[in-house]
Amino acid sequence: MKLWLGLALLAGPLAAQSARARLEGRVPGAAVPVLDSLVQRAVAEGLPTEPLIQKALEGGAKQVTASRIVAAVQLSLGQLRAARDLLIRAGDEPPVTPGEVTTVAWALRRGLPAPVVQRVVAALPRPPRASAMHAVADLAAHQFDPDSAADLIIAAIGQGLVRERLLDVSAAAAHELQRGHTHAEALALVRQQLPNVPASPKPTRSAVARARRPAAPPPP
């Protein structure tokens, strides 16, 4: 715990410093000091800063006004706080990991109700939970009842499926919908298949041959 706190204290100022460097020239100049203070506040609270920086960069790229960028970053900071509190309520011991805070914040942004997210967190006591959250959110996006969607993913976790295999579960349910089944039928069918849901195909050799790495961003 002491080591973790020590690292967090050391990493905080460095993160804030690099954040300012990344923002300058990419967002309206007037917004930089405010955004910098929001990032520093996140550091002080032990929250991840990358989602805030990304939101600011996104606003700058989309040529949004400074005030709207600041408002969006403030909203993101609030989402991260809510995510941290949810994790602690679900049983994670503070300080919660930045990655899990980001995951939960994303699940909430994708429209999952907080109690559903909390159930999934409790069902997966050990991170990472990102795939589970995305699997439930994917099902909800296909108009499955979020509680029933969480039930299915928790059942899949109980059957030993982890990480990306959980995304195969949500994909299988969506596939059953496409085949004409009702939502309830699709969930029941996939539940029967567990844990042997079809795996998503690997990238083809031609896709790998075509793939290229994005150019590295120029130094700030």
Binding site: W106, H134, E164, P203
Partner: peptide, 21 residues
């Protein structure tokens, strides 16, 4: 894209999940 999320700027971003190859 099957996954969309509000971008807080009045539009929607798409979401891509990259799995380990």
């Amino acid at each position: 894209a099957e996954r969309l999320v509000a971008d807080e700027f009045g539009r929607e971003n798409s979401i891509v999940i990259v799995r380990p190859a």
